[in-house]
Nucleic acid binder design. Structure first.
Lengths: 357, 357
DNA sequence: CTGAAAGCGCTTACAG
DNA sequence: CTGAAAGCGCTTACAG
């Protein structure tokens, strides 16, 4: 309980009987051409005094703080697992992630409108001299115009699940094409010929939704007799059940629906209940992401399991390799992570009276 | 895209035609006895050059980094909302939370066994000179033995949902006594007389579970004809369904179960299904927390809605008031946050054949 | 093989 | 009313 102040490098040096610069070098693991005995003395002294490097100071000196700014909210199990992967990989390398986000579970912010707040968050990280940034899609967009700024400050950026028209940084995405193909094949094999796709709002920060829908349309269109039509949510992304109801009760009368995420799949479930359609008897549904609630739905949702932890680990690895120095000027990389179809009970053969109506 | 280096205070001072110390003072908002015109010139110059204070450097000088270490995992909606409240309140005050945790959604760590890792995490925060710490229960325990250390470094600590035998820091807890009384009254009013309580593992980091169970037992015991018996999970906390099955099929034959959290309530649901008991026909169940899945259970779970966001905001506020200086030597505070009973469909009148068996 | 000195970009007494 | 100087606790050339 003593109020003894935090030991400084000077204390360690004195205790070991060497100069401050010698102690500094040795404690950084650079044995240099110091004698083994000297090294031992310094290491022991540091241990004995409980010395810990002040990372603020060494951050100023070296230009490296061993921290990475992460702008990802823990809003659903996908992103939580991404965060988990990032934390895991970064901790391993003795880096500390600093996570920021906006809004909360109930009040999702409108990122396009609130770009200034996004920039403010980035600045709060930069002011602490984070070595790099990992961004989720909305922040990527908020950040985009400040690219020049960051580039001139040499801060590597990795973006997750976002595809820019002209890429400006490394990114990690899911292999959408392959996943779309697998889902399409599954539904076609079950005999479905009128297939709907319900997408998200496809705002400029939701390039993943656009990509996912287009890849799916493409995959289905290779089948001569199958037809696919797509619906999108409104600008606020809040009218999922409405859109699903419209989609199910209109002229098209799909026998299967592919939702770009489990959230929209859940909306389709709700609409199906309202309309008295049974799943999968009248209607097959496939989601995307395998969020934590997917297996608990009634019936359990067939979906595409992304690998969020792997995505997070990969994002962190990309950051670390850029920071390792030798890779500084290599071309941008887009890392594709696989996803796996999970067959549960929301998909079945197309109804035999499929040509009703 | 210019590679112009980050502007320093010296640049601002030169641009404004004042000394570095004058610029420093003015930019910190200390107008001092400088002329209005001088202040304007400095502020304008900083703006024009895009100067931003290097928080690493000012952190060294002032001993304050405007960061708070937060050791809370985003593992369920309760803790996510706590985090959300902390982030919100801290951002408002221009502080930056740095969140760390262990394990992931699927591999929950054994905190008691992995205390060294907890201490390592704390050190990684301290090395960056966080101004204060907010801890969730397991970290509180890991931290406990290092109290002297932190105290000597004058780092304020706030603990959430944890009650130490002898308090060593400020804390924020839920008003367990009142909540327990409300639940007990609800079940007693419905005519239940044999009531079970299923608690968690009640490890030394789960004082909330212990407290919650005891308060509930106490509240029920005031009723002359009612009896309450409690069950606890095993050390790993993994055998919820087993314990629930045992509890439901044993001699006691409760007509109602109070679970110390919605997680255990879910285990009781599963056990009830296995045993063919209908909810609430044969068995009433009350949970705690109102986690995100509670309303989606079949039937929707009656539970006690905690106020995690308020808890987070309060924890952050406590930290900020300790850091504001004048409160430094005030006695420890334990802040109690209310919780609200949420009546849904998992509770009903005690079955009339309650005395069967 | 080792150390004295300068420097990182700020803040803080202190002097005028 | 304002500035020159010392200092925070390290790291980094550079000298010997």
């Amino acid at each position: 309980m003593s109020q003894s102040r935090v030991p400084r490098l000077k204390d360690v040096a004195e205790e070991a009987g060497v100069s401050v610069s010698a102690a500094s070098k040795i404690l950084r693991g650079d044995q240099g051409r110091f004698g083994d005995a000297t090294c031992r003395r310094v290491l022991d002294a540091a241990e004995r005094l409980g010395w810990r490097r002040n990372l603020l100071v060494s951050g100023i000196q070296t230009g490296r703080t061993q921290t990475v700014g992460v702008m990802i909210p823990p809003y659903d199990s996908f992103w939580i697992n991404v965060l988990s992967g990032i934390h895991h990989r970064l901790s391993e390398a003795d880096y500390l992630p600093i996570t920021v986000w906006q809004g909360d579970l109930d009040h999702f912010p409108n990122f396009e409108a609130d770009e200034p707040e996004g920039v403010r968050q980035i600045n709060r990280l930069l002011d602490r001299r984070v070595d790099a940034l990992i961004l989720w899609p909305p922040f990527s967009v908020a950040y985009h115009d400040h690219l020049a700024d960051l580039a001139s400050k040499r801060v590597p950026v990795v973006v997750i699940d976002h595809r820019a028209d002209e890429p400006y940084c490394d990114s990690v995405v899911t292999n959408e094409a392959l996943a779309a193909k697998t889902v399409a094949k599954h539904l076609l094999d079950l005999g479905h010929r009128r297939i709907a796709c319900i997408s998200s709002r496809e705002s400029k920060s939701q390039t993943w939704a656009l990509e996912r829908r287009q890849q799916f349309e493409r995959a289905v269109s290779f089948h001569d007799e199958a037809e696919v039509r797509s619906w999108r949510l409104n600008h606020a992304g809040t009218n999922g059940v409405e859109v699903a109801t419209e989609l199910l009760s209109g002229d098209f009368r799909p026998t299967a629906v592919f939702a770009v995420s489990d959230h929209e799949a859940q909306d389709v479930y709700d609409a199906a209940i309202l309309l008295g359609l049974s799943i999968p008897g009248d209607l097959s549904i496939v989601g995307f992401a395998d969020l934590d609630f997917a297996a608990g739905l009634t019936p359990p949702l067939s979906t595409v399991r992304q690998r969020p932890r792997e995505i997070g680990v990969e994002a962190a690895s990309l950051v670390l390799s850029r920071l390792s120095g030798d890779q500084e000027n290599l071309p941008l990389v887009e890392s594709k992570i696989e996803a796996d179809f999970v067959l549960r009970e929301s998909t079945g053969p197309a109804p035999r009276d499929a040509d009703r109506g």
